[in-house]
Design a protein around this nucleic acid. Structure first.
Lengths: 334, 334
DNA sequence: GTGAAAGCGCTAACAT
DNA sequence: ATGTTAGCGCTTTCAC
């Protein structure tokens, strides 16, 4: 492994000149530069990023914290982050936290010591005090998918509005008994989606029926059990609003297993628009989140911060989500 | 940010003593160690991994190369890698290569310079000369999901056998006109799956009908178009063997869109067993790959190599894949 | 425009 | 058992 010294020797200059020639920030004699570049090529020299990082106090690395990369919303986000990171010469370290704040803190501490120049969190919760503290300390931090009020920069969709629109669509197509399969309600995101659901109902003068609101716990529960149980009790909604596409898939399976049809008997709307959602049976009407774009934007924001863009006020950036209408909702006459 | 010097000063010892006390590898007076630990705690000292890495020539970091994290087989692999890595104090850098060998080479070069201690490639192709060279140079490398002959350590399933068994199952359940939707045939993995298909057919004395072998190009093509085209031409298989679950989903959609039923008219077998596959309509009979386990094993192997386990011969480790029978195959009588 | 020297934070001989 | 020293590979004053 050639070092800067080897290059210097071969080019007949000092290491500092090599450094200067490579950085391009400092004037170097044209002919000297040529010789240096020649030597670099000949020796296949690649600067040691560790040494550089040690000296400069930065590593061009960002940490990406996700709850679990196996949850299908996160790969696209990660991909967006990685693509932008690479464009800017950054590398990304992937961390799965399983919603465990202590594990996340450990991770952050470990990485923070000169490892990473900033973090993107897709894991924010109300209790995520440590993220807030990181930001307070002046460490570059951007949230994605989930936000924490206005205090920390973030790239998210308007969950309330998207949910409101989805449920409104269901109401406009003649549905009156709309079930919601909600996710972890300790997450702002699901609180907002639930609010959107409630307000859409209220706006249409429809009651909120507790027997139609289903909460689903962990990530391995897609709501199949909850919907089945509801149906078996004889509670029959005319539509299900699932707050994620996997939950929509679980709901459809449960409805069909009870001998009912989708959307004939029960309409279903999802949330996410996964790659496969268009190919389900029926093709899923769902809220499409621009996940890749969100990841990409978050990365851009973070890199700007790292590069010392004066940040000013934190900004929560709202990207557009929109309802993709396919075939899982039937228009009902009354 | 406290450095080792600060700790030393506060504890009234030299930096090397601090280093020794922390490493635990060298005897340090019990009382001295206490004082050091106290100072460490008081200053919230965290060693600078960059400096450590520069000195020791390793970073406890591994690079994970995947074609695209959005392809649903890779998140589980990545998760397996990451969990094991973390257990051993390693961090993982995620790289998406989009099957682009040049991009991958750039990545590898960049990371290799003292950044990462080893690589896990889920991207190997026959042309992946650079991976082979890396290994030759003595750099720790493990392949996962895809392998390169016996030359490089790998953790894979037996694609030939799994495919053979899946098709044999289709034959045993009375199918005679079995269509295959194959993936990128420049990949050994798909060549093997195709071989398994052919040999299962041959073993049963069935002909290979060219009009029933469908090749699907990029990752955004799940075979929907190809299957639709085949059906529209009046070519009607009694079963489809899809070489991935997304392709099975595409096939099912296409079959249904042509007014046929699954498995009534056409049975479908997939390959992967994604989280959602059990909830499809019909629940998908598919070859289950232990993806998490494969990632975990690959990481373990790599870390052993990094830690200087004398490697000996490269070993291609075969993990068990098995056919999960659900409801997308109908038993046919003749 | 270029070289010499110092130092980023750490560890590992080498002394004592 | 502990302190001193050198050096990992790089950048950046500071001289010239």
């Amino acid at each position: 492994m050639a070092t800067i010294k080897d290059v210097a020797k071969r080019a007949g200059v000092s290491p500092s000149t090599v450094s200067r020639a490579l950085s391009g920030k400092v004037p170097v004699d044209k002919e000297t530069r040529e010789r240096v570049m020649e030597a670099v090529r000949a020796l296949n020299y690649k600067p040691n990023i560790l040494a550089k990082g040690l000296k400069e106090g930065r590593t061009n690395t960002i940490g990406l914290m996700v709850p679990n990369i196996c949850n299908p919303v996160f790969p696209a986000v990660a991909r967006g982050v990685e693509d932008v990171a690479r464009e800017h010469g950054f590398t990304v370290i992937l961390c799965n936290t399983d919603e465990n704040i202590e594990a996340e803190k450990d991770y952050v501490e470990k990485l923070q010591k000169r490892w990473v120049d900033g973090f993107i969190f897709a894991t924010a919760r109300e209790e995520s005090q440590h993220i807030f503290e990181l930001k307070e300390k002046g460490f570059p931090v951007v949230l994605v998918v989930r936000h924490m009020g206005q205090a920390v920069d973030a790239v998210v969709i308007d969950n309330y509005k998207s949910s409101f629109e989805a449920v409104k669509y269901l109401i406009n197509t003649g549905h009156r008994r709309i079930c919601i399969i909600n996710g972890d309600t300790s997450l702002t995101l699901y609180k907002e989606r639930f609010e959107g659901y409630k307000h859409a109902l209220q706006a249409a003068g429809l009651p909120i029926m507790p027997e139609l609101v289903l909460d689903v716990a962990g990530r391995d529960d897609n709501g199949y059990g909850a919907v089945t149980a509801m149906l078996k009790k004889g509670i029959l909604p005319d539509a299900v609003f699932a707050t994620s596409d996997p939950r929509a898939i679980g709901a459809i399976r449960a409805i069909k297993d009870c001998g009912l049809s989708v959307p004939g008997d029960v309409s279903v709307v999802g949330f996410d628009d996964l790659d496969i959602s268009a190919f389900l049976d029926p093709p899923l009407t769902t809220v499409s989140q621009p996940l890749y774009e969100m990841g990409a934007r978050a990365a851009r924001r973070l890199i700007d911060m790292i590069n010392g863009e004066k940040s000013g006020q934190p900004k929560v950036e709202l990207v557009e989500a929109n309802l993709v209408i396919r075939k899982s909702v039937k228009v009902r006459e009354h």
